[in-house]
């Protein structure tokens, strides 16, 4: 079945959130305003990305990250021949030109740049191809998505969208019990940390906003980012009681159960 849509309705941040939570493997293809981007994931981690016709060879990425000089880059282009990225990487490490860490960091930086560019796209069709992986000759990484999601949510400025995401500030927040989500590995801003420090099912989002002196828009944006990164969940505040509503025509507990059982029997018989 399809996982496809338009960025106008389903943002890149939301897509990354889905890929992260579902630990998806495959490639997200986005047809943007003037070019197409591919981002590949393994088990919910970013493995590889490319955009348009941009030269994304390892040599080019290392050159752009100032790990290779213009001269070295030219020589590799001329003499590299049919050498693929993995072979070139090994050669450069063995020759002492770069370290493995240089390569990984440069790739992280390059792929992050592509995702950041995607965050600026508000229009474009996307589809997710399950099990479609990057070419074998490319170097894959394993980047956690939480930081990218937080980064993406900082781009979200539309009041209406934030209001849809968090309709009520009278709800509370709790930390998600999802394994793998570790706050220590997430790059939060000072404002985000201030909000995190108040997260407790007893505190409403409005109380947190008051305590941290944030406007509705500011608190919504931060809470949205934390939710999207799978770090927190919205819950009803502890200790709140709603006005009693008369759900059953009887107060007797056993009669109420009998009534539900009658409903079940009737629906089954339809």
């Amino acid at each position: 079945m399809a996982l496809r849509g338009n960025l106008r309705d389903f943002t890149v941040t939301q897509l990354l959130n889905l890929i992260n939570l579902a630990s998806k493997t495959g490639t997200l293809i986005v047809d943007g305003p003037s070019e197409t981007a591919h981002a590949s994931f393994r088990d919910g981690k970013l493995a590889y990305a490319r955009i348009g016709n941009e030269d994304n060879s390892l040599a080019s990425i290392l050159h752009r990250a100032n790990k290779l000089s213009a001269g070295q880059y030219q020589i590799i282009r001329q003499r590299g021949g049919q050498m693929n990225d993995k072979e070139l990487g090994l050669l450069l490490i063995n020759a002492g030109y770069v370290t493995q860490e240089d390569i990984i960091l440069s790739l992280h930086q390059y792929f992050t740049g592509i995702i950041q560019k995607l965050f600026t796209w508000v229009e474009g069709f996307f589809r997710f191809e399950n099990e479609m992986l990057p070419p074998d000759d490319r170097i894959n990484v394993r980047m956690d998505l939480e930081n990218l999601i937080i980064e993406g949510s900082r781009h979200l400025r539309e009041w209406e969208q934030l209001q849809d995401e968090i309709p009520s500030l009278d709800m509370a927040l709790k930390f998600a019990d999802r394994p793998g989500a570790n706050l220590r590995n997430v790059n939060l801003s000072v404002e985000e940390w201030r909000v995190v420090s108040y997260i407790n099912p007893k505190n409403t989002i409005r109380q947190i906003a008051n305590a941290t002196k944030m406007t509705d828009l500011e608190i919504r944006r931060i809470v949205y980012g934390l939710i999207q990164a799978g770090l927190v969940e919205i819950v009803r505040p502890e200790g709140t009681t709603l006005p009693p509503a008369r759900m059953f025509p009887t107060e007797d507990r056993e009669e109420q159960k009998s009534l539900v059982n009658r409903l079940i029997t009737r629906i089954r018989s339809l």
């Binding site: 496809r4 849509g5 338009n6 106008r8 309705d9 939301q14 995401e165």
Partner: peptide
């Protein structure tokens, strides 16, 4: 219609 998911959640 994924464009309605956000509203559904709201």
């Amino acid at each position: 219609r994924p464009e309605t998911f956000r509203e559904a959640r709201s």
